[in-house]
């Protein structure tokens, strides 16, 4: 690990000013991803600006019935918050499905959105990776890509975004707010992550030096009827190989509103808009759910090792929507 300077920011303008235009500086939140990547030599910042003490650690209801979540709210506090659990149960479930109790106590909402892929080529500086060293190549395409992307990827990168939280946030139209030296700004989560294309190293649309200050969730009555389901290669403490956040409002056998987002299928949490369009106004039955999933997955381009993700996501959609339809957010048990 390279030597670095360390400063603790006490207010948002101060943090933004200190980081300023220094491309070698990084904000330090919980450190669960950044410190790990620094040890691996993937990140080599010259300075860290610690933002954990910033007054951004509140979860507050908004006037319209949504929630405003501060950037330094820990994953644990977010998942434990009664209003999160009541209004967006899938969000609480998604957070709880990620990492471990220890890591959730450290990790922050802002950091979660900015975490880097766990693609094993990205985290190994002994191997090429377009995301880490632009132009060096993507060995995952010909190599190990069982947990690679099936949607929105390119020949330059097939890495998936590792966040569980982000999948639920995507389903619920989260808006990311940030601060720069020039003032505040906001980005819908749908616009927050950039397409992979031939620039997989450019991950977000945040301006240089921007500090995420929070995430706003608009009111969404359907979100109270939501669940998150994650599949991984062991029962806990592992990244997803596929996950789905779903919300469903059915009246008289007709889908009035629905939300769907997929995890571990793309370089970003994947909002399944085509599937939602297919669902809304149609019948609430397994065939319709499967057809909706197929509408989204029609664009899937799996590689040789990850064809399983297509039936996996399809089955998860059907299972989760069926569960919501029959049992609501309390689950099947």
């Amino acid at each position: 690990m390279r030597e670095f300077g360390y400063e603790r920011a006490l207010d948002v303008p101060g943090a933004v000013a200190v980081l300023g235009g220094d491309p070698e500086a990084r904000y330090l939140g919980g450190g669960t991803n950044l410190v790990d990547l620094m040890k691996a030599g993937v990140e080599r910042p010259a300075r860290l600006v610690d933002v954990r003490e910033l007054p951004l650690d509140r979860v507050e209801p908004t006037a319209d019935g949504g929630l405003r979540i501060g950037a330094t709210v820990t994953n644990s506090d977010l998942a434990a918050h009664p209003e999160v659990r009541r209004r967006y149960p899938a969000l609480a479930q998604a957070v709880l499905a990620g990492a471990s109790g220890q890591l959730r106590n450290m990790a922050t909402v802002g950091g979660n959105l900015l975490q880097r892929t766990r693609c094993a080529y990205f985290t190994d500086i002994g191997k090429p990776c377009n995301k880490r060293v632009p132009g060096s190549g993507c060995p995952a395409v010909a190599g190990e890509h069982r947990n690679g992307a099936i949607l929105g990827a390119s020949e330059h990168c097939v890495a998936v975004h590792p966040s569980d939280m982000g999948v639920a946030l995507a389903a619920f139209d989260a808006v990311v707010t940030y601060e720069t030296a020039a003032g505040p700004g906001m980005l819908a989560l749908a616009d927050f992550y950039r397409p992979v294309g031939d620039t997989p190293h450019l991950e977000t649309a945040l301006p240089a030096g921007a500090l995420i200050t929070g995430v706003t969730l608009p009111a969404a009555p359907v979100a109270a009827h939501s669940r998150y389901r994650k599949v991984r290669e062991r029962a806990s403490y592992a990244f997803a190989v596929g996950s789905v956040a779903a919300a469903l409002d059915v009246q008289d056998g007709v889908v009035r509103d629905a939300r769907l987002a997929f995890g571990a299928v793309a370089s970003r949490p994947w909002r399944a808009t085509a599937a939602e369009r297919a669902l809304i106004g149609g019948p609430a039955d397994a065939d319709a759910y499967a057809a909706a999933a197929d509408a989204e997955l029609a664009a899937a381009q799996p590689l040789s090792q990850n064809t399983y993700k297509v039936p996996l996501i399809r089955n998860l959609v059907v299972a989760l929507l069926t569960e919501l339809e029959q049992h609501g957010p309390e689950g099947a048990r």
Binding site: D124, E144, R234, A235, Y237, A238
Partner: peptide
């Protein structure tokens, strides 16, 4: 039976994911 598997990349001749996030062994919940 369910988890353990170390993977080598034949191009580079070294492991891919040589850590406990890449090499899974059973966690308590399993």
């Amino acid at each position: 039976a369910l988890h353990e598997e170390a993977v080598r990349d034949e191009t580079f001749g070294s492991h891919v994911g040589a850590d406990f996030a890449g090499y899974h062994f059973a966690a308590n919940a399993d």
